[in-house]
Design a binder for these strands. Structure first.
Lengths: 187, 187
DNA sequence: TGTAAATCTGGACTCATGGTCCGGAAATCA
DNA sequence: TGATTTCCGGACCATGAGTCCAGATTTACA
């Protein structure tokens, strides 16, 4: 059921174009069933998001690959943001539908991202001034709005440019200086 | 006409609640007239935005007060972001309506903010790597999403904390180090 | 296995809202 | 005053989220 919705979102040229009727039809199921299963459009989007993000979440929380405890928090944060960027681009229509609607900020998934980001920042800066880690986490994630990313891509910024700038910002948010940054990136 | 709409937005508890019918009724005018004047809901919001932002724009472009040419670009940027923050909070419902809809990024007003921000950054960093100024400008503005700001306020961050963190971020985006920042802020 | 009760299902229906359209009012002109 | 043009209001339309109920299906039990 979610699969059908997923396919529709992937194929549609805009998330508004994917109506609940269309999803119901694609599952060969009545609209009532759809609503009974997910409560609302937002509920369905959320459920879809949950299945999509599960792998990302698992990989981060496994503590493997770039998220090992002995990796610098700066590098873990950079890797995390990069992963989110890729994830959003891979699911751009779904993400756009989510980010257009109200209340994403309250969603557990966003809250999770926020928590992970803030924790990395705290870890990397010792004990930052009250609230600074949270603010910086919010700010870093805000720069990942799919609309923003696509606008930048459409206006000539390459994905690599965005990636690099984002990574640099992540380091800066953790008080790394320009010169230290350059040596770090080289590793 | 815009005035009536403005009042409605200010009073309403959410921008979705302000319908075109309501606005038309408040102006004691037919819906047709409303649509003839503004083309669409987005057009009306845009027009309203334009009148609201005019003062801000004038003050920035006048080059007076904190925007004098002999002020550090860093400080001008910080002042600019602060002004936007205040502006958004003063017109939160209108801004929310705008930021919910698609295409704000394409709006001339946003484009103007983006341009001003990017110019300050370029000025303050010499010639940053290709695209970095634009990215950083986008990123700084993204942290000003009204939803984000209100969420932070609702979650215990004080306006001052946000202000300070934002100012610091602005400086950081221009390659100012932590220690230089501390001396600068004191002035 | 037959039947009654409980549960589930599909899609017709309601409702809200942005946007269109046309009959007639007002203004302009002769 | 009468003809012509312009403009206006609000009835009307289209769309899409969410509701609801008649009937199908499953379960419960004798």
């Amino acid at each position: 059921m979610l699969e059908a919705a997923d396919i529709l979102f992937a194929q549609a040229d805009g998330p508004e174009r994917v109506t609940m009727d269309a999803i119901a039809a694609a599952c060969s199921v009545g609209k009532g069933t759809l609503f009974r299963a997910f409560g609302s459009r937002a509920g369905l989007l959320d459920a879809l998001w949950a299945t999509k993000i599960e792998a990302l979440r698992a990989s981060v929380e496994s503590g493997a690959a770039p998220f090992r405890q002995d990796t610098l928090p700066q590098q873990r944060l950079a890797a995390f943001l990069d992963l989110i960027l890729t994830f959003k681009l891979d699911n751009r229509h779904l993400i756009r539908a989510l980010e257009f609607g109200p209340g994403i900020l309250q969603s557990p998934h966003y809250r999770w991202m926020l928590g992970v980001t803030a924790r990395f920042i705290e870890e990397g800066t010792g004990s930052p001034p009250e609230g600074a880690a949270l603010y910086n986490a919010h700010a870093l994630l805000a720069a990942l709005h799919i609309d923003l990313i696509e606008d930048m891509l459409a206006n000539g910024l390459s994905l690599d440019t965005i990636r690099d700038a984002q990574t640099k910002r992540a380091y800066m948010a953790m008080g790394i200086t320009e010169s230290d940054y350059k040596t770090l990136v080289r590793t």
